[in-house]
Simulated assay, not measured.
Amino acid sequence: MIGKLTGRLSSTATPGEILIEVGGVGYCVRTPLLALDILKNTGSEVSLFIYTRVAEDALDLYGFPTEEELAFFKQLMSVSGIGPKTALGILNVADVVSLKRAIAAGDSVMLVKVFGIGKKSAERLVVELRDKITFLSGISGSPLAGSSDDAEVIEALMALGYRADEARHALKEAGSVSEGIISSSVNERLAAALKYLGTAKHA
C-alpha cells in the first residue's frame, strides 16, 4: 500500500487529478481542487500523503498535501454511504478547517453543495462526525482557565484554528447572549461559541 509519494509534478491537465513522476514511474493521483492551486507549478517537486483504494478492477490513489487533510478524508469515509469520491467532493467545497467548523457547529448547509449528498445525508454526516470533530484537539498542556467543560470547548476551538484568547472571549460572549449555556453540554457550548465567532466575523 502506498502511503506517501514525493516526486516531480508532471501534469495537471486532467481536472481533479495530477500526474507525479517518481523514479521514472508516473502515478495518477486524485486530489482536492484546492490542493491543485498549491501544486500548480508543473515541474516542481511535490509530496503528497496517499490514500490507496484497491478494487477488483482498479487501484485509485487519493493525495493530500497534509496529514490533517488525509485524516479528515478518512473520517468522512467512516460515515455510512460516503465513499472516496464523495469524500473528495466534500473537500472540494471548502478547506478542512472551514468544513470542521461547520460540522462542529451542526451546520449541514455547506455539505449539501456536494453532488450526491442530499439534505438527509448531510445531516447524518454532521450527527455522526460532530463529536469526533469536537474532541480531536491534539492540544495538551494549554493553560486554560475555567471549568473542565470550558477547557474542552476552548481546546476544540483552538484545534479549529482560533487563538486561545479568541476562544475564551467567544465562550464568554456566547454565554452572555445564549440563555442557559452555562448548563449546556460541551457540544452546545461549542456550537454557541462558533455561532458567535461567525456573527462577529461578518459584523
Rank of each mutant, 00 (worst) to 15 (best):
E128L: 00
G3D: 08
T6Y: 12
P15G: 12
P32T: 11
P143S: 10
V126I: 02
G175A: 01
I38M: 12
S137A: 09
G43I: 13
L5Y: 09
S140V: 02
K119S: 14
L88V: 15
K74A: 15
E17S: 10
V29K: 08
V96L: 06
R101E: 03
A174D: 00
I18V: 13
L171E: 01
G7A: 09
E173H: 09
L39C: 11
E21K: 14
M77F: 10
T52Y: 13
V186T: 07
K85P: 03
G180Q: 01
P143K: 10
M77V: 08
E155C: 05
L34K: 13
L36W: 05
A170F: 00
K172I: 10
S137W: 06
A104S: 07
N92M: 10
P15D: 07
L160F: 03
L33P: 05
A203S: 10
E56T: 13
V186K: 02
R53I: 15
A203Q: 15
Y162W: 01
V29G: 12
D95E: 05
L48H: 09
S121I: 00
L39M: 14
V114A: 03
K74P: 14
V109S: 06
T14S: 04
G26F: 05
D131R: 04
R124Q: 05
Y62L: 09
N187F: 01
P32R: 05
L34Q: 09
G118C: 00
K132E: 10
V97I: 09
A156P: 05
S11G: 10
P65Y: 09
D150E: 03
A102K: 06
T6P: 09
V127Q: 06
V177E: 12
I154K: 02
L9W: 09
G161H: 08
N92W: 01
Q75W: 11
K100E: 03
A192G: 02
I82T: 04
L39E: 07
K132I: 01
K113C: 05
L9H: 07
V109T: 08
V46W: 08
R30D: 11
S185N: 04
R130Q: 12
I133M: 04
G83P: 10
A170P: 00
N187W: 01
G141L: 04
F135W: 07
E128P: 00
K195Q: 12
D95M: 11
T52F: 13
L34Y: 06
V22W: 12
L129N: 09
V177I: 05
L70V: 03
T6V: 12
G23E: 03
E155W: 12
G26D: 04
I2W: 08
L70I: 03
T134M: 06
V29Y: 13
A203H: 13
N187G: 14
D150P: 00
T12I: 15
V93G: 06
V177R: 10
I20W: 00
E17G: 03
E68H: 14
D165L: 01
K132T: 10
E173S: 07
I18R: 07
L33R: 07
P84Y: 02
G141Y: 11
